[in-house]
């Protein structure tokens, strides 16, 4: 009897603790759902918080990413050693072909120069580059983004193009002081205005989280063939025109897939293209008139 009396407060406390515990799980779940709603309603606030967190953790991620990059490079070195001979032969062939292209390019450049002089053409403003190291690869099955160790204090701004060694990788979607997030062209939310050469059909390159993004909104009468080259169109003004993107990989049932020039799984450094002068030049022209 006495024992039961003594145990009662203890049991009550335990029951209370259990209830509080159960309640806390529900409360935090509710908070998580609340966060999702806040993210939908106030994207600016959420992006600011994200940028702040990215700034804080970027030195740690920078430290983590260096040994990982060294290891990946070492593995790549060993892999390359095993196929050195074939690669050498392939490169020699490629070099011969490229030399012919170089001669052609020089001729075309001279011709272009002359024609531009005849037409009094004003070339696009030159754009500057900032190079950043990839410090975090946040890509998972449902998101394709990376983080670089350059931010607004290095001149980065949203919507700037991010280029790998071979072609377009994505565009800047969020900048902190010292770090920035880049939405890769394969992400579900990525939409890049492009043109399909040689007929210069306009289209939108849309990611779907797979390795090969699709071409959307191609004109119905357009003729697209496997191997056609795709570059940015510059429409919308955010990205400079002519950045190499990829080639048409497959045309099946009206779906056009693009093989990217850049291997997005192996990005180590990216060049971020500052195309601000384009807007600046356009604004100045509208104020002071077209230069004669």
């Amino acid at each position: 009897m006495t024992a039961r009396v003594l145990n009662r407060p203890v049991a009550r406390l335990a029951a209370l603790k259990a209830a509080a515990h159960r309640f806390s799980l529900g409360l935090f779940l509710f908070a998580a759902i609340g966060l999702m709603m806040v993210g939908k309603v106030d994207t600016v606030l959420v992006e600011q918080v994200r940028a702040g967190v990215a700034d804080v953790v970027s030195p740690v991620l920078d430290g983590f990413s260096r040994p990982a990059a060294t290891l990946a490079n070492a593995i790549e070195d060993v892999n390359e050693l095993t196929r050195l001979r074939q690669e050498n032969a392939a490169l020699r062939r490629e070099n011969e072909a490229l030399q012919q292209y170089q001669a052609l390019a020089h001729r075309l450049e001279a011709e272009n120069e002359t024609l531009r002089g005849l037409m009094n053409y004003e070339p696009d403003p030159a754009h500057s580059f900032v190079t950043g190291r990839v410090i975090a690869d946040n890509s998972g099955p449902f998101v394709r983004t990376i983080m670089v160790n350059r931010g607004s204090q290095h001149g980065l701004a949203e919507d700037q193009a991010a280029l790998g060694a071979r072609g377009l990788a994505g565009r800047v979607v969020q900048t902190g002081d010292r770090a920035a997030r880049i939405l890769l062209v394969t992400d579900l939310n990525s939409r890049i205005p492009v043109v399909v050469e040689p007929l210069r059909h306009r289209a939108i390159l849309g990611g779907d989280n797979g390795p090969q993004p699709r071409l959307l909104y191609l004109p119905p009468e357009s003729q697209v063939h496997v191997g056609d080259r795709i570059t940015t169109s510059g429409h919308g003004g955010a990205l400079p025109p002519g950045l190499p993107v990829g080639t048409v990989a497959a045309v099946e049932d009206g779906v056009v897939r693009v093989r990217l020039f850049e291997d997005l799984g192996r990005l180590e450094y990216v060049r971020l293209v500052d195309f601000e002068p384009y807007f600046e030049a356009a604004r100045l022209r509208s104020v002071v008139g077209h230069p004669r």
């Binding site: 953790v57 740690v60 991620l61 983590f64 990413s65 990982a68 990059a69 990946a72 790549e76 990839v134 410090i135 975090a136 690869d137 946040n138 890509s139 998972g140 099955p141 394709r144 990376i146 983080m147 989280n209 797979g210 390795p211 291997d263 997005l264 799984g265 192996r266 990005l267 180590e268």
Partner: peptide, 15 residues
């Protein structure tokens, strides 16, 4: 933090 370290492995992102 380790989960977001770039591994530069092809096709790693999808799995």
């Amino acid at each position: 933090l380790l989960g977001v370290v770039p591994l530069q492995a092809p096709l790693y992102a999808s799995i």
